[in-house]
Computed example of a mutant assay.
Amino acid sequence: MTIKKLCIFFSICYFCTNIYAQTVNNLGVNYTIHSKSLNEDRQIQVFVPESYKTTDKKYPVLYILDGQRLFPFGVSLLKSNTHFQLTPEFIIVGITNKYPDRFGHFIDIEKRFLKFIEEEVISYIDNSYRTSDKRILFGWEYGGSFVVQTMMDKPDLFDAYLAASPFPLDNKIEELDNFLSNNPRINNMLYFSVSPYENQVNIGTKKLDSLLKLKAPKTLNWNYKELENEEHLSTPYSTIYFGLKKFYGYYPELQFNSLEEFTKAGGLNYVNEYYKKRALDYGFSSNLSDWTMFSLTRNAIRAKDYNQFDIFINEFKETGFLERIRINRSCLIAEYYLENKQYDKSIEIFSLLADKYPNSELPLIGLGDNYKSLLNNKKASMYYRKAEKLFKNKSN
Score class of each variant (00 low, 15 high):
Ile117Lys: 00
Tyr241Pro: 03
Lys356Val: 05
Leu280Gln: 15
Gly204Leu: 01
Glu50His: 11
Asn25Tyr: 04
Gln200Glu: 09
Tyr191Leu: 02
Lys5Gln: 15
His34Asp: 05
Asn272Pro: 01
Asn26Cys: 14
Lys386Val: 01
Lys264Gln: 15
Gly139Lys: 03
Glu120Gln: 04
Asn30Phe: 03
Tyr343Val: 00
Ile44Leu: 06
Glu110Arg: 11
Leu77Gly: 04
Asn370Gln: 10
Ala387Pro: 02
Asp355Ser: 13
Arg329Lys: 11
Ala380Tyr: 00
Phe71Lys: 09
Lys57Val: 08
Phe256His: 13
Ile203Val: 07
Phe284Arg: 05
Ile136Asp: 13
Tyr20Ser: 09
Asp355Asn: 08
Ile92Thr: 12
Lys58Tyr: 07
Pro236Tyr: 13
Lys225Tyr: 09
Arg135Pro: 10
Leu227Asp: 05
Thr239Pro: 02
Tyr357His: 11
Pro155Glu: 15
Tyr59Cys: 00
Leu375Asn: 15
Ser289Gly: 09
Arg324Asp: 05
Phe262Gln: 01
Glu141Met: 12
Leu375Gln: 15
Asn221Pro: 09
Gly139Asp: 03
Ile3Glu: 12
Asp310Gln: 07
Lys53Glu: 13
Phe179Ser: 08
Thr23Arg: 12
Lys53Phe: 07
Gly266Ala: 06
Leu27Asp: 03
Leu322Trp: 02
Tyr248Ala: 09
Glu318Val: 05
Asp177Ile: 06
Arg298Met: 03
Leu169Ala: 02
Phe247Thr: 04
Asn182His: 11
Leu322Ser: 04
Ile203Thr: 12
Gly94Asp: 02
Asn97Ala: 13
Trp291Tyr: 09
Phe294Ala: 02
Asn221Ile: 11
Leu208Gly: 00
Val75Tyr: 03
Lys115Pro: 03
Trp291His: 05
Asn18Trp: 04
Leu367Gln: 14
Tyr129Thr: 03
Arg102Pro: 15
Asp177Arg: 11
Val194Gln: 12
Tyr99Met: 06
Lys356Trp: 05
Ile203Trp: 02
Asn39Asp: 13
Leu157Gln: 05
Lys57His: 08
Asp310Ala: 12
Asn287Tyr: 08
Lys264Arg: 06
Gly243Leu: 09
Ala21Pro: 00
Glu335Ile: 01
Leu362Gln: 11
Gly243Ile: 13
Asp305Met: 03
Tyr384Ala: 02
Ala303Phe: 05
Tyr129Asp: 00
Leu211Cys: 04
Leu6Gln: 14
Pro49Met: 06
Tyr59His: 01
Ala265Cys: 04
Lys206Cys: 06
His105Pro: 04
Asn307Pro: 01
Phe47Gln: 01
Leu78Gln: 13
